[in-house]
Write a protein that binds this DNA or RNA. Structure first.
Lengths: 186, 186
DNA sequence: GCTTGTCTGTACCGATCGGTACAAACACTG
DNA sequence: CAGTGTTTGTACCGATCGGTACAGACAAGC
């Protein structure tokens, strides 16, 4: 008897990091095995669906983390400006100030719609909508809030791409600074 | 005797499209062969260095096209505002209004620095600097021009990521609209 | 015609891919 | 302790990976 439900969750962060660095195609099971310290037996025991299920689980975990840490406050925090500032600081922390890449964004660019498309779209749609909600609650007109929210989400992704491309994390910090001005000032 | 120097250049667009859709790892030689209509023999004759040389050549061709079509006018056109507007319209056309992805950006996110890093960084650095130049010539203070240029380059990349992620090319068009306001209005 | 050099299709290479089979090792319950 | 179900390492599978070898097809110069 005795299940070990922790194994799956314990391995997820390491698996996520491999996907993040190498992309879906580039993340081989050998690499995943090495980074998690798990053999194929354990890996396929925890994820019977193989690589695809690992990616699914990773995307789900990321989505859940953002939902709880970022989107929920944007929607519900009585102080919407504080929620937006929280979003910016959590984003900075999550992406290690531009040294880390967005797995969801990377998947979006390369993946041939392996069934991840829904999750990928949901991640960004939720972010955009939660932020628009906060902006409206902060007193912005609805149309302006939608536009600003879309711009913010896309700007963060672009900041990650450019920071990585130039190998210059400072790009990410400057981008967050400009974003804060646009979102919470005035 | 008789060289056939055209073969290489003729195949490049098809090869580029494969890299664009599948990423470096995902683009198999079988796929490239099918899309170019070239067998392995021809492929390795035109690109003795194999896949890596194909990617190099594709990146070089993209860089050259942008240099000629976008960066040079930004630096040299006597009407900097017109050059910026040209940049926006050429960008819209090149990325097929958001239906196409940026190969350089996609490589930047996933590639483990296979020697492409320099070319990738150069592509974005040149864009940013040429745009800053145009903004300065249009009357912006240098610091503001640098900031705006970096923001614009990164915003375009983000627009591509988000348009692809949401499978909604309209995102890209809206982003270009906002960008035009920021860059040439006021 | 023959020669010379450029192309290209095909067969093949070792390595690695994702995935499966399964038996030994393990951790619990009784 | 025996018994039961879980967890794991290992060997193995066919397919495909990027890359090489090379013989024949081809075109141009003589």
């Amino acid at each position: 008897m005795t299940k070990k439900p922790g194994a799956r969750e314990d391995a997820l962060p390491a698996i996520a990091e491999v996907f993040r660095e190498y992309g879906y195609e580039g993340a081989s099971l050998a690499l995943i095995g090495a980074r998690t310290g798990l053999g194929k037996g354990s890996l396929y025991h925890a994820f019977p669906g193989g690589k695809a299920e690992m990616a699914e689980a990773v995307l789900a975990a990321i989505g859940a983390w953002f939902e709880e840490t970022v989107y929920a406050p944007l929607r519900d925090d009585p102080d919407p400006r504080a929620a937006i500032r929280l979003m910016l600081s959590e984003t900075d922390a999550y992406f290690r100030s531009g040294r880390r890449v967005c797995l969801v964004g990377a998947f979006a660019l390369t993946e041939g719609r392996d069934g991840f498309a829904d999750r990928i779209a949901g991640y960004f749609r939720d972010w955009r909508e939660a932020l628009a909600e906060a902006l409206i609650r902060a007193g912005r007109p609805a149309a302006e809030a939608d536009s600003l929210a879309e711009d913010a989400v896309l700007t963060i992704q672009g900041g990650l791409v450019l920071a990585r491309a130039l190998d210059d994390p400072a790009v990410f910090g400057r981008m967050l600074g400009r974003l804060e001005e646009r979102l919470v000032s005035e």
